[in-house]
Design a binder for these strands. Structure first.
Lengths: 406, 406
DNA sequence: CTCATTTATTAAAATAAATTAATAAAGAGT
DNA sequence: ACTCTTTATTAATTTATTTTAATAAATGAG
């Protein structure tokens, strides 16, 4: 026995814990696997894998989930995570609203609530969020003990190490970081992640990017975000800001961006820019059905323009097409630098479907060297916002597993 | 004993080989380490690490290299690679000439020969290269048996898996890839790598980027190349083309690039472009000492312009400064996408020192969000072309170790 | 010179894990 | 129903490796 002071875990413990966490993660990611497969995958013997799986079953982490297919002979028993061992709480926050979701460990949605909380840079926001969440959990009768941790996605430059969103500094009060405050209040581990990064993980684990190693996700919402996945892992950059496609300069004599620079991509291809362009066009007397779509006093939003386009409104189609071209040019730049296998377009503007994706694809063909194009596919997300929610979940769980079995 | 047909290596062999290759790589990269450190590093016990080191010593891979410092008590014995176990042959090829270099495993230069072979896209080139190399090895009395492998760096889009340079397709004859031909002729493993990628590895292992995790290397030569190192590893992209900064469009109404696109960065900021700009200026009658620097009939080259700038020639300084600004703008784009810790400028134009680096830095300040700048440093390489040579060497050895101890 | 301190070496003991083998179980095909 | 094939289970055996401990070696400090 080692004394408490010299709590240096032994080599054997380290290796055993590594195997345990590998197994848990594999079970989470694959859904279910046989012992044979796991043993081969992690270079362990079958008895030894069996032993660990049995331990994990005793501890309630793992259950038998059925049997697999067999060409001949006895079919393998499949094991999976005990989906009810813990639940997770996901807070998905954006500028329009906030979703509170509870998942089980099989990514099954348990309960969900859409809350009318728009992200803004104030101390009050976090208080309101905590209040809403508390109410939600109480109403649903979900005890803190049944929660494994909290995952939180939001737009902005997120410094993961510090647990801070630098785009919304006022969410951090005095000396307590955003993550620390939530962690303190709920007594649960928090995983903070940028919304586009989360989407990328979701698409990689469960969507169009499954099995791919090099993936870009373009998220067109209020601004333009780029999610990057390289060698099968999310890439964050040195300080977590990688992928700021929205603030590369594309027009030297363009408009002033909210970031203070001139002619950023954001000033042309964001949801914000689209509305501005539409308003300008309407004011200039362009023919369009857009004004008719608005109720008395209702402000113009992106979904109106998308709807108009789907109704054949030439003006709206034109706006989306121009936006797509410019966006495609920006994506072409990213493609030259990252050389990905797949680019996935997501976000509110992805609802515009081919009105966006066609010009994007066209621009990529125009601006990319053929060497890049040949190995590249451009797709509109099929998972939609589910990618982001599942992405946060995957990120959270991967984080928790490392913590739990360190 | 397992029969030959069922050569499935056991779990124990796999683990042991992994530890062996880890140790060898660690010894190569660190130069020398103590057994204690290695055991801790790779989660093995001291006796077990000792055993493997002793085996490796018997096999001639490892030698004692001295003793390390000790605050108190017996100083640790340090072990290192046996530098003479094998030598490596490095072929460093570019459009001006070719260098043949033999290193030992401690990266010490054994012999070096500069060969007057300019890279060109023809079958003859490879024959000439093989001939020169043969002669070089014979003249130096270096037997094939003493060589562990051959590392080869050259510009162009290199498909590592296929062993082909797609920019110079004629180096590949009929059905034999470039790498396969060399491998066949010399009977040695070949590691092919893009020159800028090699430079990046060199700077990371032995230069300014040592210890950094996220590094960009900008190589300004005939064209603009970008070397990318993320999470401590070189990043190649899905098909090995990542980092084609030179062919992102920066001028919608610019010049036609040799790649067929319009207004690529290459058309403004490459060595080729610099000479074109200088010629145009001279023809337009700009005041400059450039013509005086040229001997009768000598063609203008980049080093003339750099020399003129160092002599205070305003025209040349102006040219370099404009080029630096444009290059900096391009780098700013890459910085937004990769969020690196350090950007290292290398290549022939790096010789221009502050005439290039100052405007580059200025442009980055102008075009980068402050979040990126705060954690970023821009440096001119201190290793120069040594970075590339050592980079190829490191790449080759890392490759060989994996092959040798699989 | 002696002591304290640290690394090295070696061997013995203990443990963990792999390997092996034998048997059982669960289907699929004939 | 029987064979074939594969997985599962279990136990015995063997091997590898860790752990422990005791001793030796190397150095600096007092």
């Amino acid at each position: 026995m080692t004394s408490i002071s010299e709590e240096i875990s032994s080599v054997i413990d380290i290796r055993r814990n590594r195997l345990r966490s590998n197994l848990i993660l594999e079970l989470y990611q694959s859904g279910q696997t046989s012992i044979n497969k796991m043993a081969r995958l992690f270079h362990a013997s079958i008895p030894s894998a069996t032993g660990i799986v049995n331990d994990l079953m005793k501890e309630g982490w793992v259950t038998e989930t059925g049997t697999g297919p067999a060409r001949a002979g006895r079919p393998p028993v499949l094991y999976g995570l005990n989906a009810q061992k813990y639940f997770t709480l996901i807070m998905d926050i954006n500028r329009h609203d906030t979703q509170l979701v509870v998942f089980d460990l099989a990514n099954q949605l348990i309960v969900k609530k859409q809350v009318d909380l728009k992200l803004e840079d104030s101390e009050d926001f976090l208080d309101a969020l905590i209040g809403e969440t508390d109410g939600f959990l109480k109403a649903q009768g979900i005890k803190r003990e049944k929660l494994w941790g909290i995952g939180m996605s939001m737009p902005g430059l997120i410094n993961v190490k510090k647990g801070v969103n630098q785009t919304y500094p006022h969410l951090t009060r005095s000396d307590m970081s955003l993550a620390a405050r939530l962690e303190g209040y709920f007594g649960l581990p928090i995983a903070l992640i940028n919304d586009t990064h989360a989407t990328t993980i979701g698409e990689h684990r469960f969507g169009l990017a499954k099995g791919k190693k090099h993936v870009l996700t373009v998220n067109i919402d209020w601004g333009v975000g780029l999610g990057i996945l390289l060698k099968g892992e999310v890439y964050n950059g040195a300080t977590g800001f990688a992928g700021e496609l929205g603030h590369i300069q594309v027009q030297p004599d363009g408009l002033l961006c909210h970031c203070g620079k001139i002619g950023c991509l954001d000033t042309i291809t964001s949801g914000f820019a689209l509305i501005r362009q539409a308003r300008e066009g309407i004011r200039a007397g362009r023919m369009t059905i857009l004004p008719q779509l608005l109720k008395e006093g209702e402000p113009l939003e992106t979904h109106h323009i998308i709807k108009a386009a789907h109704n054949g409104d030439e003006f709206s189609i034109d706006l989306l097409s121009r936006l797509g071209m410019e966006l495609g040019k920006g994506i072409a730049t990213a493609v030259h630098l990252f050389n990905p296998e797949i680019v996935i377009v997501t976000g509110v503007l992805a609802e515009a479907g081919p009105y966006i994706s066609n010009p994007v694809e066209q621009a990529i063909h125009k601006y990319c060297l053929s060497d890049f194009k040949n190995s590249l596919s451009i797709r509109i997300s099929e998972l939609g916002s589910k990618a982001r929610l599942w992405g946060v979940q995957a990120h959270l769980i991967e984080d928790l597993v490392v913590k739990e079995f360190s």
